[in-house]
Design a protein around this nucleic acid. Structure first.
Lengths: 220, 220
DNA sequence: GTCTATATGTCGATAGAC
DNA sequence: GTCTATCGACATATAGAC
């Protein structure tokens, strides 16, 4: 139930949004949406002729919720490697998974091009920005020029998405935090020796990732 | 429908196994299992008192199907970095996803410790073997000693699992192939200069990953 | 072990009054 | 725009004969 001032349509999208994150698309029923939103059966089908229409609006909403923060960060004025580090260590809900990425594992979404489109667009946008920043970092000698920035960009997105999978399997955010921390350290370790300004090579006393995943509720 | 010689119980597990991969647990109905297995209603509930019991058997089966190949590879006699390379470039069904990892995205599985256990065990086993091999590689100077092998092991598993997410979103195996290829190249690029015996540093003419994901049907 | 019949609930949607 | 009533189909079993 949400505040009375919120319009029905808005409440429906918000409820569907949350439920798709918590349970996925196929597993979310109109009844649950009605109950959580406090909107009646008639109103619901007035605003959205089918469950799929509501899901499309909710999916779009979830993408719009997550993308701007990432885009702003990656296109900001900071040093490229600092932006990569910030992207990889930003707090994320490791045990809840990604509002957007999770949708790819729902067969009803993955086989429906219309529903998959916003998800594909979101990942394509992140990939583009990551590629640009990684290329800049390589040009400054802050990471290896032996690996294609496009590939590295896919690697970083995959690390985050796969980190969720490992964390949920283990019911522990650590695999997520470790995967992201490992990616960042490996990027830095690949930098040409002249430019390396991080810690001396050592296998002991590696600081913990300070469980970035525990804190906030950002995502992709 | 499967061969007549197959026992009912076996046919049920096989059908459930396939359907859980294709559609997930929540979205698979007893009716579909009956139809695909050709086993009648009575027989089904004779062998498995509930859908969950059948799912547990199918999940166990999927883990048993995938683990041995990985374990054999990683504990084999080859050079550590060769084993890592083989693990990362092994053909996998990028657009179908992982039979085991996919289960973490099904809310009904993720919130049921009994169902999640075989999944958690499978990932823990892979993580253990990867850690051992990565540590060996680091000791031989074939990759950076600046990154904890445990973290790298999580990174590699996450790369594969996240690669599936990106490939399905894009409906194209390339993000999967690129993420894995990028991880391997980055590992190699991180090796101390003395031991690097791969290609000279260059940003052009990087060979394609030869779409490993298209070929076979191995998975995790 | 396998079969057919039956049961109870929910899904996703439609109808039509207000 | 919102309400209540209703619908046919399917989900997840259970009952009980063979």
């Amino acid at each position: 139930m949400y505040s009375q001032g919120m319009e029905s349509r808005e409440r429906l999208v918000t409820a569907m949004s949350e439920l798709m994150w918590e349970r996925g698309y196929a597993a979310t029923s109109p009844r649950e949406v009605r109950e959580r939103s406090g909107v009646g059966q008639g109103s619901m089908y007035h605003h959205f002729p089918s469950k799929r229409d509501l899901a499309l609006a909710a999916l779009q909403r979830n993408c719009d919720d997550l993308l701007p923060a990432t885009t702003d960060l990656l296109t900001g004025p900071d040093d490229p490697m600092d932006k990569i580090a910030a992207y990889l260590t930003r707090p994320r809900p490791a045990l809840k998974g990604c509002k957007v990425g999770r949708m790819t594992q729902d067969p009803l979404v993955a086989t429906d091009p219309g529903l998959l489109a916003p998800v594909a667009d979101a990942f394509a946008t992140v990939h583009h920005h990551l590629t640009v920043v990684l290329r800049e970092a390589a040009e400054r000698g802050e990471l290896s020029t032996a690996v294609d920035p496009e590939r590295l960009a896919y690697l970083l997105s995959a690390t985050i998405q796969g980190g969720y999978v490992l964390a949920i399997a283990a019911q522990d955010p650590r695999p997520y935090d470790d995967a992201c921390a490992g990616a960042l350290e490996l990027l830095r370790a690949s930098a040409p020796p002249a430019q390396r300004h991080d810690e001396p090579i050592s296998t002991t006393n590696i600081p913990a990732a300070a469980s970035a995943s525990a804190a906030s509720e950002r995502n992709d």
